[in-house]
Design a protein around this nucleic acid. Structure first.
Length: 425
RNA sequence: GGAGAGGUGGCCGAGUGGCCGAAGGCAGCUGCCUGCUAAGCAGUUGAUGGGGUAACACUCAUCCCUGGGUUCGAAUCCCAGCCUCUCCGCCA
């Protein structure tokens, strides 16, 4: 959510941002509502001031035994008018709030302006494609050979878009999770948290999933609860409504969680295997920082995610998203994409974003820069570190051998009983 | 799920339907004082929104869990909901 005052003072900047992100949001309507709102406030408060004064007069007059019937009757009509104005104001403010929730965040100056993903900029590559002396298999074939992946089992249980891991596959995922969490907590300074996997609509609104992405989430019919699409939601909202002290910042959290996504409207090319599924695991990093440092923190965050890929020996690239590809809430975002030879494509395994004060304002998360100073909204960031299915794909497809066995990356072996290789079963 | 208690400022905590934005304490800030530190003394310190200002100042309104209601007037009375705690039941 943007500051209403900012929109009032910089309507053109906001309109440009709406256009650049390809969103629909009627800024002029917001400005009109804002004017109407302030008119109503002025009118209502004038009457309230009068009522407050006269009510005191009534109190005094009564003590002196004077007749107050006329004043009371008068105030009754004033009270009715105030109620009427309050009702009008409520309607206007509800409209205004709803409209404000549809205004996207403004892209940072360093974000390239373009309509679609063709405007994204690859800022760097790491490593290079593995030279394989045979035709690489896609991960679903490797998973079959290893007895690691049970696609049919997932479908049987829950329908398309669900899968099961078995044996070496399940074990490999557990090793990856442990490896990532250890790196974040022991080396990179993150505090591990475990959080609920269902959250209320207010939390979803806080991080910006609602109202826009309601169709992409699973919702319980009996309660006001949604299954989380990412740990970003509960972890960031842990501090919703808080007023933090300067020395509390920066806060670095990491969390392992399942993620649930309806992927409404997605179709086609990615249905094979486990690149796009309704439920998957992810390790997520969340940062709550002071505004001045948030862009430095974003670069560090990307570096922390990259470190995982480097330690796993994977070939990847860093993609700076252009305005048209940037999500609703983000001001700037880098995607990490890893090369997978079996599918011969780049897979997005991490998305690292700076939301500036956009989420903080929605969830009312502030801090006091120094003693006695006014509270200020913090900046929030998050990044995957990493999404598990695609990391699995990357390991399987990049470390596969001619016979279908898969070498375990060195960094992972301590987390996998010092095993070196996954053998066909 | 059943029975009771309670939800007040950064934190703890008092509160009679009208001089309550709210006592008191802690923490914070500003002075003073003690050769450091601790203690002590005096003063000061809420948020949000409107108006106002170059910016302050100033000013008005709202806010005592949330939402309704009663009243000229509600932190205070009534209703509903949410949450916390204690006891009981059930349970991985």
């Amino acid at each position: 959510m943007l500051d209403l005052k900012f929109i009032r003072d910089n309507p053109q900047i906001v309109k440009d941002a709406v256009t650049a992100k390809g969103e629909k949001s009627d800024i002029d309507a917001i400005l009109k509502l804002d004017i109407k709102r302030r008119e109503l406030i002025a009118e209502k408060e004038t009457l309230e001031a009068r009522r407050n004064k006269v009510s005191k007069d009534i109190s005094l007059a009564k003590k002196q035994g004077q007749d107050t019937a006329a004043l009371v009757a008068d105030m009754r009509t004033v009270g009715d008018k105030i109620d009427d104005l309050a009702n009008q104001l409520k309607i206007i403010e509800e409209g205004l709030d709803n409209a404000l929730l549809t205004v996207p965040n403004i892209p940072h100056k360093s974000v390239p302006i373009a309509h679609d993903e063709s405007g994204n900029v690859i800022v760097r590559y790491h490593g290079e494609k593995k030279e394989l002396s045979f035709k690489p298999r896609p991960h679903w074939e490797i998973g079959e050979i290893l007895g690691a992946l049970d696609l049919a089992g997932g479908v049987k249980l829950s329908g398309s878009g669900f899968y099961a891991l078995k044996g070496q596959g399940a074990r490999l995922e557990r090793a990856l999770i442990d490896f990532m969490l250890d790196l974040h907590t022991k080396k990179q300074g993150y505090t591990e948290v475990m959080i609920p996997y269902m959250v209320g609509s207010q939390a979803m609104r806080g991080t910006g999933q609602l109202p826009k992405l309601a169709e992409d989430m699973y919702k319980l019919s009996e309660e006001d609860l949604y299954l989380i699409p990412t740990a970003e939601v509960p972890v960031t909202n842990l501090h919703a409504g808080d007023l933090l002290a300067a020395e509390d910042l920066p806060i670095y959290y990491c969390a392992f969680s399942p993620c649930f996504r309806r992927e409404a409207g997605s179709y086609g090319k990615e249905v094979r295997g486990i690149t796009r599924v309704h439920q998957f695991h992810k390790v997520e990093m969340v940062k709550i920082v002071e505004p001045e440092s948030s862009y430095d923190e974003l670069e560090k965050l990307v570096g922390d995610a990259e470190e995982i890929l480097r330690l796993l020996g994977l070939h990847y690239r860093v993609n700076l998203l252009c305005t048209g590809d940037l999500s609703f809430s983000a001001a700037k975002c880098y995607d990490l994409e890893v090369y997978v030879p079996g599918m011969d494509t780049w897979l997005e395994v991490s998305s690292c974003s700076n939301f500036e004060a956009f989420q903080a304002r929605r969830m009312d998360l502030r801090y006091r820069p120094e003693k006695g100073a006014k509270p200020v909204y913090v900046h929030t960031l998050n990044g995957s570190g990493l999404a598990l299915p695609r990391t699995m794909i990357a390991v399987l497809e990049n470390y596969q051998q001619r016979d279908g066995s898969v070498l375990i990356p060195d960094a992972l072996r301590p987390y996998f009983d010092n095993k070196e290789i996954l053998e066909p079963i």
